[in-house]
Amino acid sequence: MTKADLVADINEKVGLSKKESTIIVELIFEIIRSSLEKGEKVKISGFGNFNVRQKKVRRGRNPQTGDEIEISARSVLTFKASPVLKKVLNS
């Protein structure tokens, strides 16, 4: 599934034009992205939570050469599926 499928679904269900539906789909993901970018959690009930986690600097190894390297502090995005979604997948 890609954005094109979501556009088609909005076009059909909401009755907006293809062009408008494309804007809606883009906006939905852009609103989520800007919220995450600010470091906020995004919770979509029935689907899951997107969470930005701060990772501290740590030591690691280059798996190819075995050299010890420093892995810089960073922010990463994690997704935790809703129990509802897990249940749906297994029903």
Partner: peptide, 26 residues
């Protein structure tokens, strides 16, 4: 309806074992 449709469609795809690829998101 738009937001519900998007997530319902995504859930439906996953239920059918279909992967989802949203360019610029993940």
């Amino acid at each position: 309806i738009s937001v519900k449709t998007v997530f319902d469609s995504m859930i439906h795809a996953l239920k059918s074992d279909d992967g989802i690829e949203i360019r610029g998101f993940g």
